[in-house]
């Protein structure tokens, strides 16, 4: 304990900032390496989408849930499966449909003849990584059933509360709002997702590599778990300890204030926390023990876009544009 303390003190006194570029804090080396391996493995499967993959990983490390929105066939499901398999976590996949009921995902009580009582059968949500495919195909009723699970990491049924396993990570995919037969997620539901990312069509070279390469399904089967549940929890704890200086918090709050002034649905305090945690994860992934404004800017669109997209005063604007405008107008103090 005291040894590491004295070492840190020494580092402050002895290392001039002019001698080296920003040195990753040496106690972070192990963590960053781990995360790097993990990210690279997923990038091998999802070719040409490095930024999106990194955001997804950051979301995971920040203990947030991830929403992937895009047209069918760009690799949403593949990405979520690659994430789950590389984590060595219990994985469940739920396909949402318009006739899906809350009991189908949470579980239900069935009368046991032998024991003469109701026995609760756990639904597919009792897992560590849950992939919800086409989350906006289900009705609002079913979508709302997710709320408690995602925020509180527990489920209450028939007056009994069941704790969900840790870590708990929801990856949901959805088709764009204009697709046929969709029920748009309510704002409260959207706010539960730390990030919304878009994959988009790959560029030509990446697509060629994909066409030439192995079958994605085969690749998924061969993926080896890189991070165990215990390690993941440790890394997630590390993320919360990444230092955010007063100057950075000033910038963060400037962003929040600006969004509230310009839009009828400004960013909520929860959105502020999301922004902070996501940028902490981003900083850690880049080997820093402090958050820079650049980290906020890197995760900013993914964190803010889906929260800003409901502005009734600016109906034409997508959330993405609004977030981008925000980042390009609020000065770094």
């Amino acid at each position: 304990m005291s040894k590491s303390k004295s070492k840190k003190a020494e580092a402050i006194f002895c290392i001039s900032p002019f001698a080296n570029p920003i040195v990753p804090a040496d106690h972070l080396f192990g963590v960053t390496d781990h995360v790097d391996t993990f990210t690279k493995q997923i990038c091998e499967v999802i070719v040409g989408k490095n930024q999106a993959v990194k955001l997804a990983v950051a979301c995971l490390l920040a203990r947030g849930h991830l929403l992937i929105e895009d047209i069918p066939g760009v690799g949403k499901t593949t990405l979520s499966q690659a994430l789950a398999r590389s984590l060595a976590l219990a994985f469940q996949r739920i396909q949402f449909t318009s006739d899906l009921l809350p009991a189908d995902i949470l579980g239900n009580s069935i009368f046991d003849r032998g024991k003469q009582c109701f026995v609760f059968h756990r639904g597919p949500l009792f897992s560590q990584v849950v992939l919800i495919d086409e989350v906006n195909r289900a009705t609002a009723k079913t979508q709302s059933a997710l709320l408690e699970a995602m925020e509180e990491h527990r489920i209450s049924i028939d007056g009994v509360t069941y704790e969900l396993p840790e870590p708990f990570f929801v990856i949901a995919t959805q088709n764009p709002q204009h697709a046929v037969g969709t029920f748009p997620l309510p704002e409260s539901q959207l706010d539960r997702f730390l990030m919304r990312i878009e994959l988009g069509v790959p560029d030509r070279a990446s697509e060629r590599a994909m066409l030439l390469g192995m079958d994605r399904r085969e690749m998924l089967k061969e993926l080896k778990p890189v991070i165990g549940p215990q390690t993941l929890v440790e890394i997630q704890d590390h993320v919360r300890k990444v230092y955010a200086s007063t100057a950075l918090l000033d910038y963060l709050q400037d962003l929040l204030d600006a969004s509230r002034q310009r839009h009828s649905t400004g960013l909520s305090p929860r959105a502020g926390l999301a922004l902070l945690h996501a940028s902490q994860a981003w900083a850690l992934m880049h080997g820093r023990d402090m958050v820079l404004p650049e980290d906020i800017q890197a995760v900013g669109i993914a964190v803010m876009a889906h929260r800003l997209g409901h502005d009734i005063e600016q109906p034409g604007q997508s959330g993405r544009t609004l977030a981008d405008n925000l980042l390009h107008s609020v000065p770094v103090p």
């Binding site: 840190k8 402050i12 006194f13 900032p17 002019f18 080296n20 570029p21 920003i22 230092y243 200086s245 100057a247 950075l248 023990d289 402090m290 958050v291 820079l292």
Partner: peptide
């Protein structure tokens, strides 16, 4: 820039 970052954003700048 690195010095500025260390002074502005690091936990314990000397």
């Amino acid at each position: 820039s690195n010095a500025y970052i260390a002074l502005r954003y690091a936990p314990e700048p000397g």
